[in-house]
Design a protein around this nucleic acid. Structure first.
Lengths: 208, 208
DNA sequence: TAGATTGTTAATCGATTAACAATC
DNA sequence: TAGATTGTTAATCGATTAACAATC
């Protein structure tokens, strides 16, 4: 379970393995071979074996992989065997959608608060039970609550300005929905979802 | 502007070039060299020149690239010089957030309707001027309106079932937010945003 | 013209695939 | 044991980087 030597490409594939194994588990499948899984997922069996072996031998010659076991192991590798406390910065439509999405769908990821520059603006449309605070309260909140992940659903400039606050407040990861790359210290992590760029890739593909 | 021979990695980078060039343009920068741009973007100058040259010679020796011109050219390559008509399938929080996001932020992408299995459920919280129809009306709607892109913000099973309807209705691209890979005919395009997998990648990185 | 910087070819690096010996 | 399938090494393929001649 060493982190070094694991390429970005492999990390990108892990959640997909996890998803397919979850489906197989739901379907009551007990064991699966790399070649059978490769047919489901449209990748080569060789790649599956190569990828999984980076983290240790989960399979058994002549048998394949135990679905339930492999599912759990990949979950551990992905860090899904623990709890995360999240806050959402921003209270607009996207902020609430992502916040609620995480709260409902993602086991182990708990949203504890929203922060917005202007909470009053969103009072009327506030449709969740999770509290909404003013951004000014963020620093104090982070002092009193260990927060692992901050979701950024705010404009570019605001996102850049808030990184140092999150840093000194002990936040380890940023899930960034702002249209910008963020510079963070190397003990912090940024994972960006650039919707705009995704849409452009779609339009490129439609036209070519 | 040929589509063949352009790797996925390059297509992924194009919107990022576009974003940085847009910023430079806003800042009034007229020309930029590949090495200067490489410092901004944290990639190699070599890669920038290599990438841009796949689409034709946009630069000039001894001068560099004209920012405004290059911005526009990449826009054309990405297909941003035309209009797209979109519909959103689903009317939940994420559907509305993405729909509004596209409507407000993305020039050239026009959302014309939402469809949901149960429109009545969302009547109370409907906060946009764009009409919401029942899914049963989708087929007829597609007959009367040329729609380029469908945004899917619905559960997995519903997403799979709706693909053939979109296909026969002439929809060319799917922006997929459902937790599944979708099989489509090869004249259609799918671009998926797997929020769940993005979050897992973040948790992996936090723990390693 | 001299300096700068592209366009493009060649070299390197890394990731994917193929092959097969190990082993359940 | 024989068959199946992994773990792992070697071969291939593709993408990135370096280098430099072309040229503005």
């Amino acid at each position: 379970m060493d982190s070094k030597g694991i390429s970005k490409a492999v990390i990108n594939r892990l959640p997909r393995y996890y998803r397919y194994l979850g489906m197989l588990k739901e379907d009551g499948v007990e064991r699966i071979s790399s070649s059978e899984l490769s047919r489901h997922m449209n990748v080569t069996a060789s790649q599956i074996r190569q990828d999984l072996n980076l983290f240790g031998g989960f399979g058994q010659q002549g048998y394949g992989y135990n679905v339930k076991n492999l599912y759990e192991e990949i979950g551990k590798i992905l860090g899904l065997d623990r709890e995360y406390h999240l806050i959402v910065i921003g209270a607009g439509r996207l902020a609430r959608a992502v916040g609620c999405y995480v709260g409902f769908q993602e086991q182990g990821f708990r949203v504890t608060a929203y922060f917005d520059r202007n909470p009053g603006k969103h009072q009327g449309e506030w449709d969740t039970s999770i509290p909404l605070y003013s951004l000014e309260e963020l620093e104090g909140y982070l002092k009193n609550n260990r927060i692992d992940i901050a979701v950024l659903a705010i404009p570019v400039e605001a996102a850049r300005r808030i990184v140092p606050v999150l840093d000194s407040g002990g936040v380890k990861g940023i899930w960034n929905f702002a249209h910008t790359d963020l510079k963070v210290p190397d003990y912090m992590t940024v994972q960006s979802v650039h919707l705009s760029e995704s849409l452009m890739q779609l339009s490129y593909k439609i036209n070519h």
